[in-house]
Simulated assay, not measured.
Amino acid sequence: MSVLENVHTPGAVQLGNIPTSASNLEAHHLKALLDILDSNAADSSIQERVLVTLGNSAAFSSNHDIIRNFNGIKIIGRFISHPKTKAKALNALNNLSMNLENQEQIKDFLHDVCNDITSSPLNSEVQLAGLRLAINMSVTNSYHEFLADYIPCFYTLLADGDKATQIHTLKVLVNLSANPSMTTVLLSSKAPSSLANLFGSKTNSDILVRALTFAANLSENYDRQMHSNRHHHYEDHSLYVLLFRDQTAFKGNLVALLQHPDTDIKEHVARLICPQKLN
Rank of each mutant, 00 (worst) to 15 (best):
Asp38Ala: 12
Val209Tyr: 13
Gly130Glu: 00
Ser61Leu: 08
Ala215Asn: 14
Leu15His: 04
Ile36Lys: 11
Ile46Trp: 11
Val255Phe: 05
Gly77Glu: 01
Ser44Trp: 12
Ile76Pro: 02
Leu110Met: 13
Gly200Lys: 11
Thr20Ile: 08
Glu125Val: 07
Leu242Lys: 02
Gly252Leu: 13
Ser194Asp: 14
His8Asn: 13
Thr184Tyr: 11
Ile151Glu: 10
Lys86Arg: 06
Val172His: 10
Ile67Val: 05
Asp116Val: 09
Leu195Glu: 01
Asp162Arg: 05
Gly55Arg: 00
Thr263Val: 10
Arg49His: 08
Leu30Met: 06
Lys251Ile: 02
Asn175Asp: 11
Ser45Gly: 04
Leu187Cys: 08
Phe70Thr: 03
Ser97Pro: 02
Cys274Gln: 04
Leu30Lys: 05
Ala211His: 07
Ser188Val: 09
Asn63Arg: 02
Asn136His: 09
Ala178Met: 13
His28Ile: 10
Phe109Trp: 12
Leu257Met: 11
Ile80Ala: 03
Leu212Gln: 02
Gln47Asn: 09
Ser219Pro: 01
Lys171Trp: 05
Gln259His: 10
Ala164Gln: 15
Ile151Arg: 11
His82Cys: 03
Gln225Cys: 02
Asp162Gly: 15
His28Lys: 14
Asn94Asp: 01
Ser219Ala: 07
Asn71Gly: 10
Ile76Glu: 05
Val269Thr: 02
Thr203Gln: 12
Val139Leu: 03
Tyr150Leu: 09
Leu122Gln: 12
Gly200Thr: 07
Ser189Asn: 12
Ala87Pro: 02
Cys153Ala: 12
Met226Ala: 10
Asn94Val: 01
Thr248Pro: 01
Ser23Ile: 06
Glu48Phe: 06
Ser39Thr: 13
Pro261Ser: 04
Phe244Glu: 12
Asn94Ala: 03
Tyr222Arg: 05
Met182Gly: 09
Leu243Met: 04
Ile73Arg: 02
Ile135Cys: 13
Ser62Asp: 15
Gln225Arg: 08
Pro83Tyr: 12
Thr248Lys: 03
Glu26Ile: 09
Lys31Cys: 12
Ser177Lys: 06
Phe70Ala: 08
Leu96Trp: 07
Asn136Val: 02
Thr248Trp: 04
Asp112Glu: 14
Ser142Asp: 06
Gln276Ile: 12
Val269Arg: 02
Ile135Trp: 00
Ile135Phe: 00
Ile207Lys: 05
Asp108Ser: 08
Cys114Glu: 14
Val50Pro: 01
Ala92Arg: 00
Val185Gln: 08
Ser120Cys: 10
Asp149Ser: 15
Val50Gly: 10
Asp112Asn: 09
Thr156Glu: 11
Leu133Thr: 05
Glu125Lys: 04
Leu239Thr: 09
Pro261Tyr: 06
Phe60Met: 12
Leu34Trp: 05
Ala256Glu: 07
